[in-house]
Amino acid sequence: MNDPVIDVQNLDFAYNNHLILENVNLKVRLGDFLAILGPNGGGKTTLIKILLGILPFQQGKVTVLGRKPGKAAHRIGYVPQNVTGSDKFPVNVLDVVIMGRLGFLGRFRKYSAEDYAMATRALEQVEMSGLEKHIIGNLSGGQRQRVFIARALACDPEILFLDEPTASVDQPFHSKLYQLLYDLNKAGKTIVVISHDLSVLSSHAKSVACVNKNLYFHDSSEISQETLEKAYHCPVELIAHGPIPHRVLKQHH
């Protein structure tokens, strides 16, 4: 097996003396489709932000694409959960999407024609062509989410991190988004997605990590009731919106 693209060893993370993540170990293989599950406040977003180099961590060893978090920015795409302060900001769609090229470009250089071409192509992928010049504040929540997905795709990333990407997206785009992720994954990209959308997890995900302070890794697209219960610390019912999951999850023995 190749070296893992994401390697986390004995990671601890505390915020204001409050332990959020404890002794987390995770290896993600190239081409994996990892779904991260867990209760709110369980540390899912924190884990992703550590992998992206947004949050500095206190203890443990973390490498992403063989480098320290944040040092391989040009090979990584990121769709955050919600973007702060974006409502009235004077910026148009294309200018937001092209921010996805920043990791490539570094400082002291202007966006080139190629950067704009990549941004335009990313907008096509999320079916937002023709809206390039619209100000971001005038878009609906779902449209904005698509723009952020395009921004993540603009650098043609090797690893794509998504934090609840379907939270504010319209239902028809749900399945299109996961089809897009499925296609990208098939093309060799590694996908790491935080989601509550169990139907998609069971049909697309190749592995599952349950995060609730600790991390439980399952190298299979199946996830048992027991796994979920461990992560949520209480018995849960499987709830799916819309179509019922087409794969029945079985109990671990």
Binding site: I54, G70, I76, Y78, S86
Partner: peptide, 10 residues
Amino acid sequence: YDEEFALAMG
């Protein structure tokens, strides 16, 4: 516009 995304982009 988005400080955390900027950080993630280096």
